[in-house]
Design a protein around this nucleic acid. Structure first.
Lengths: 223, 223
DNA sequence: GCGCCTCCGTTGTAATTCCAACCGAATCTT
DNA sequence: AAGATTCGGTTGGAATTACAACGGAGGCGC
């Protein structure tokens, strides 16, 4: 297996592990790779997985389908980011669907081997564990944040909650978001046309301005 | 410090670590304890914490307040459960408020020390790391599940999504939930009276029956 | 240039939800 | 036992949202 792609990949999971140590580590973790076309399903919901996914090129979406077929975007993962890390141990079947949002290349790592008693086999193992904890904690915060947004009772509040957070994150009042309208509506769990409608109303009221996925907040929601 | 309470506590974080090894470990982690009255704030939002919380007695609530003052219950933690584990490293300020839901006793552990290079100081360290990963992964799934519920577009769908999951988890069609009405409404991010109204309508339609926090599902939503 | 397709905004209507207020039952206090 | 408090159900009206349908702008291939 050719690990070249991963020895130089900038990913939080392997942060702090020098390229020369990576092949041995990756071999330990039984790293293997696959390519997917846009829209292709990588892991269907219900699957039992014992490895986690790492995107090296392209982008994947983590989706959730409910009983009635509505699909919502839980999150997206680009180069260097992980998916399925919450289901890779504990034996629970996958509660989400992972799908290629763009043509992409992904790797699968058996990180379960790190959880066993003998963690010290490779010197890099401890570092991976520490990275893994930080990644899981960050994902946790990300999910909490989404909950904060979609817990709002009105579309306007959801939009403001999301956009003002995004503005804060990017440190500017003018910024782009990683969604098209449908994606934004899915993320905020609202109807697309209702979202467009509310955005238009907010623009007319001078709260903000926008074009496609580029936004400008006019009145700071913080007061 | 008297670790007696923690040497016998059944908690996923210390699972698999025998009581006699715990005092040394806890000492390593600078474990310290505090008691809180019902309603008392343990960690206010915005605080920078570098330890995680472990409930030994009572119950705490993890709350999220938005810009406009609406408060929603992210989760609750009872004896043996953790809180703040997503904010204990990475240096991000606390995005949630932690409050005592009941009179309670909690412990604070500096788990950040496990992430450093020398993990092998105590023999139990590796086990705690593995436990921590599983706890974080489980929390992850729990947050994803809540998102699945509140992403539903109608109160009825939210209720069915939540109740049918709860029925599945408990393996019976008749079960109790850990919320009163207001708590359930907060969890599902809907208005309490609207929730009562919808529950009454669903009962009239024969979908389910309930009394207080005890529910009986009549028609399986799976078909 | 021409269709084809995707994305986004608009409109109108039906349905849902919020909100505030009220009421009764149960529990707790004194 | 009376009063206070909490909890859950109900109601009515105002406001919001979903839903379906349509139309225009822009990109793309031919």
């Amino acid at each position: 297996m050719d690990y070249l792609e991963l020895t130089t990949l900038d990913t939080p999971l392997l942060a702090g592990i020098p390229p020369e140590e990576r092949p041995a580590l990756l071999n330990c973790l039984r790293a293997r790779s696959a390519a997917y076309r846009r829209g292709e399903v990588i892991w269907p919901e219900g699957e039992r997985v014992c490895s986690l996914g790492l995107v090296s090129r392209g982008q994947v979406q983590i989706l959730q389908d409910d009983f009635w077929g509505n699909r919502s975007i839980l999150s997206q993962a680009g180069p260097g980011e992980l998916f399925g890390e919450a289901y890779a141990w504990g034996g629970e079947p996958l509660g989400v669907t992972v799908q290629a949002a763009l043509p992409c290349q992904v790797w699968f790592l058996d990180l379960g081997r790190l959880l066993g008693p003998c963690t010290a086999a490779c010197p890099a193992h401890a570092k991976v564990m520490a990275n893994l904890v930080e990644v899981l904690a960050a994902k946790n915060r990300q999910l909490s944040r989404k909950i904060a947004h979609i817990s709002q009772r009105s579309i306007r509040s959801k939009v403001l909650s999301y956009l003002s957070w995004e503005a804060g994150r990017q440190g500017k009042r003018q910024f782009s978001i990683p969604f098209d309208r449908q994606g934004m509506a899915d993320y905020l769990a609202v109807d697309r046309s209702a979202l467009s409608q509310e955005l238009g109303k907010m623009r007319r009221e001078g709260l903000l301005d926008f074009h496609k996925n580029h936004f400008i907040l006019h009145a700071p929601p913080e007061g």
